[in-house]
Computed example of a mutant assay.
Amino acid sequence: METKNQSTATTESNKQKLVIVREFDASRELVWTAWTDPESCKKWWGPKNFTCPVCEIDFKVGGKYLNCMRSSEGKEFWSTGTYVEIVPMERIVCTDSFADEKGNVVSATHYGMEGFPLELFVTVSFEEHDNKTRMTLTHQGIPSRKMTDLTSASWNESFDKLAESIK
């Protein structure tokens, strides 16, 4: 599946805002489902060489998600968040935090990382464009340019997997 990739980062009061725009050769419904259906999400969540053995989604405003990314060495990284806004087929806004396997928010130091706030924000929008879907992800609150670059690489590897999963 062909996708176009564009990433930018800006600084806002010592926190980075990452914006990634991807175009998928798939319907908006398929791309939306990849974000909202746990079994679909398991197919692409996490960068290359990672799997997603656990994906729980309570997809409603105020509902929570809990995801596990497992490295090829077996190290697990858990994340959780709360859905803040849902506009069907158009936009998802949620918090994003490191977590333990029970969904409790933990500091980034739990995973050997420094400087992350306990809560970040993710906005994903979906637009039909030339019989394709343009998806824009905005990840706000990343602590440094270095971490923004690493986060961008991870998201883009995940989105490469997403493209493959919706062929």
Results as ranks from 00 to 15, higher is better:
T82P: 08
M113P: 03
M113V: 03
T33V: 10
A153R: 00
T82Y: 04
I57Y: 03
A9M: 14
D96T: 08
D130I: 03
M69L: 11
S144P: 12
L18V: 14
T123Y: 04
W35H: 14
L18D: 05
Y65W: 13
S152G: 06
L30Y: 02
V19I: 11
K17S: 10
K102M: 06
W78M: 14
S154T: 06
C55K: 10
E128H: 01
L18A: 08
I20K: 01
W32F: 12
M147E: 15
D96S: 05
K64W: 10
P47L: 03
P47W: 06
M147A: 15
S158T: 04
S79V: 07
Q6K: 11
S154W: 01
S72N: 09
T136K: 07
D58G: 07
S72Q: 08
K17W: 00
W155Y: 13
Y83L: 11
V31C: 02
V54T: 15
E29Q: 15
D25K: 11
E2C: 00
T133P: 11
E23V: 04
D96M: 09
N104L: 04
R134L: 09
E157A: 14
V21N: 04
S13R: 06
T136M: 04
K48C: 10
L150E: 12
S7P: 00
G74I: 08
P53S: 02
S40M: 07
T138R: 01
S152H: 00
V122Y: 02
S13T: 06
T80A: 02
H129K: 13
F24N: 07
A26M: 07
E29D: 15
S158F: 05
K15Q: 14
E2G: 08
F50Y: 14
T10Y: 01
D100I: 09
P88Q: 08
C41P: 03
M147Y: 15
S165M: 00
F116T: 04
H110D: 14
W78F: 13
S165V: 05
T51D: 13
K167E: 12
E39R: 03
H110Q: 13
R28S: 09
P143V: 05
E85V: 01
T51R: 05
S154M: 02
F77Q: 11
A153T: 10
K161A: 04
N131I: 00
E127P: 02
E76P: 07
T109P: 02
T33N: 12
E73C: 01
Q140F: 05
V105S: 04
L118K: 07
Y83D: 12
E90Q: 15
M113R: 03
V54K: 15
R145V: 12
V93S: 02
I57M: 09
L18Y: 07
E56K: 15
K167Y: 06
G74T: 03
K42L: 04
S107Y: 02
V106N: 10
E76N: 13
T3H: 11
A108S: 15
N5S: 12
M89D: 03
I86Q: 05
R28M: 08
C94D: 11
L150H: 08
I20F: 02
F159K: 03
V87L: 09
